[in-house]
Design a protein around this nucleic acid. Structure first.
Length: 578
RNA sequence: CGGGGUGUAGCGCAGCUGGUAGCGCACCUGUUUUGGGAACAGGGGGUCGGAGGUUCGAGCCCUCUCACCCCGACCA
């Protein structure tokens, strides 16, 4: 590609609405441009990287016996009604009507369409297993799109769906995909980790997320220092630790209740103090002595959850344990319905079901809200003052928590970007949609399914997030927009023009994805652009080096320059393939 | 959706107490430059997000509205 005929849309300055490095750099490098919130143009250079990632994905999928199809982006409501998700998907599903007022939606994922497709075409166990995939746009009307194409509303996803005769066969399909994903992310040169995860909206029994390790990641992953356990913080089990109760913090309770549950409740004035932190300071006690009462809104109505002051609730665990379709923290209006006061909510006389985290079980004489504005209660005790329906593990794991593998194994946390997710779906969709096949004994069976997604644009963004420096993007060879660039360091010198073109053609004919920077710009601009865009190798041709009968070869990452004699150009390929 | 914020040239921004809409980069023309984002001279580009209002006069004040960004809950 000759850059004089290309659209190089690099910018000196990043727009101020970009936060993360990858977002800033993708805009500066002219890879993407925003069209609307969470909706982007992929520019020529960005598309090059995108296509390379796509190619790797496609190759690995095909190697795993997955078959490519293309399903529609606009999908009819009846399929969604059949699976039951038309009602539960919520606002993220962008719904529209056609001219005859029929309901459609933009596909956020394709379980419905693919289940319907396979059900129509596959009648016999003899045609299974089957794995169908596509690389195609999705639309999810995210509440808050951000970080450029990292979390876009319209994005391209590789989504695959496996169909099997039983659970065992489905497990095999799952591990096949798991391996394919490892290969894909390895080939993209990413530092990543597969972690145990929640299956969320998609549903199913088990799942893993593929996380690219990056400080700006939106997910927190917990990793054990002794075993190979790694999981999303949302689902990381917390091993209940009795010794917490005997800790110094627990005893540091001046102003709060005593250890004996007999002591009477005391109501104290805590004007405008609504946070655990402020309350702990105000009372001069540890946060561990405070129990916060969180109101959640669910498909079963409002419920309360008690969490120790220094802990955070995991709605994911809550949803799973309670077997809910839907859960979120209650809004102010819902809290008002409960005759309580936001920031002062407590468990006593609360007219909803009350659940509690395991850490509350052995806690005695703690501080809780009074359900009256500006007042809290000291010396509150469950069983005596109110009833708890059930205790379970509902808090988020924290750094320093114990791993399930051994007593002295500790968890630490890292941030990650979720680039892929694999799910075991079981018969969730095939049952709902009555999709199945005839088994060897002539009986009808539902398909055992799995689904597997990769956000293609997100892989691009995550790769850039992980591979950049002060000069710009520094992508690995496998997904760089070009593998190498020939730079004319002089725009008039006839010999420079001629030799650079020859060398460019020579390299190109060797199958290297190379660009020729023949733009009438000063050398400085060309160097800066090549580095910003993230091209791994620069081949510089200018009067200086030609005078010595050499060309210059420079590695973007190591910054190491080498001079290569013009009569030994094959050396170039040794260096490129290193 | 709740909370916070921003909309002025393609990008980054300034614009005071209401009184002729500006700067840097980018762009166009010319000359000189040419190995790390060149210099000079000249030039083009704006419904000041939109609508309404107050005023002799609004980028600035008021009302409404739209868009976008940030923090929270969701996800590839």
């Amino acid at each position: 590609m000759k850059l004089s005929k290309y659209l190089v849309a690099t910018l000196k300055e990043a727009p101020n609405d970009a936060e993360t490095q990858s977002h800033k750099l993708m805009i500066r490098a002219g890879m993407i441009r925003k069209v609307a919130a969470g909706i982007y143009n992929f520019m020529p250079l960005g598309l090059r990287v995108f296509r390379k990632v796509e190619k790797i994905i496609r190759e690995e999928m095909n190697n795993s016996d997955a078959i490519e199809v293309m399903m529609p982006f606009v999908t009819p409501a009846d399929l969604w009604i059949k699976s039951g998700r038309w009602d539960i998907y919520g606002k993220e599903l962008l719904r529209l009507k056609d001219r005859a007022d029929r309901d459609f939606c933009l596909g956020p994922t394709h379980e419905e369409v693919v289940t319907d497709l396979v059900d129509r075409e596959v009648k016999s166990y003899k045609n299974l297993p089957l794995n169908i995939y596509q690389i195609q746009p999705k639309f999810r009307d995210e509440i808050r799109p951000r970080f450029g194409v990292m979390r876009a509303r319209e994005f391209v996803m590789k989504d695959a769906y496996s169909f099997d005769v039983d659970e065992k066969a489905a497990d095999e399909s799952y591990s096949k995909m798991f391996n394919a994903y490892q290969n894909i992310f390895k080939r993209c040169g990413l530092e990543f980790r597969a972690v145990e995860a929640d299956s969320g909206n998609i549903g199913g029994s088990s799942s893993h997320e593929f996380m690219v390790i990056a400080d700006t990641g939106e997910d927190t992953i917990m990793v054990c220092d002794k075993c190979d356990f790694a999981a999303n913080v949302e689902t990381t089990p917390v091993i209940f630790q009795e010794e917490d109760l005997k800790s110094e913090n627990h005893k540091k309770n001046a102003g709060a209740g005593k250890e004996t549950p007999e002591i009477k409740i005391e109501k104290i004035s805590t004007p405008s103090i609504t946070s655990v932190k402020d309350l702990a300071n105000f009372l001069g006690i540890a946060e561990q002595r405070i129990v916060k009462t969180m109101i959640v809104s669910t498909d079963q109505g409002l419920e309360a959850v008690l969490i120790r002051g220094d802990h955070e609730i995991s709605l994911t665990k809550y949803k799973k344990e309670r077997n809910l379709e839907f859960v979120e923290l209650a809004n102010d209006k819902e809290i008002d319905e409960l005759k309580t006061a936001k920031g002062f909510t407590g468990p006593i006389d609360l007219e909803v079901k009350i659940f509690a985290d395991n850490a509350i079980k052995n806690l005695v004489s703690y501080v809780a809200g009074s359900n009256e504005k500006d007042f809290h209660l000291l010396n509150v005790n469950h069983n005596k003052d109110f009833k708890i329906n059930k205790f379970f593990d509902v808090r988020e794991a924290m750094e320093g928590d114990r791993c399930r593998c051994s007593v002295d194994a500790l968890l630490s946390s890292t941030k990650g970007i979720e680039v892929g997710h694999v799910f075991k779906l079981g018969t969730k969709y095939s049952e709902a949609m009555k999709a199945g096949f005839t088994d060897a004994s002539g009986k009808n069976q539902n398909f055992f399914m799995g689904c597997y997604g990769i956000g293609v644009g997100r892989v691009v963004a995550a790769a850039i997030e992980q591979n950049n420096d002060e000069k710009g993007i520094s992508l690995p060879l496998s997904i760089a927009p070009f593998e190498a660039i020939v730079i004319q360091a002089d725009k008039k010198n006839e010999e420079v023009l001629r030799v650079s073109e020859e060398i460019y053609n020579f390299i190109k004919n060797k199958g290297i994805d190379v660009a020729l920077d023949d733009r009438p710009e000063s050398p400085g601009i060309k160097f800066k652009d090549a580095e910003l865009i993230g091209i791994p190798y620069q081949i510089v041709i200018g009067p200086k080096s030609l005078a010595k009968d050499v060309i210059e070869f420079k590695n973007r990452r190591t910054n190491i320059k080498e001079e290569i004699p013009i009569d030994n150009l094959n050396k170039l390929f040794e260096l490129i393939n290193e």
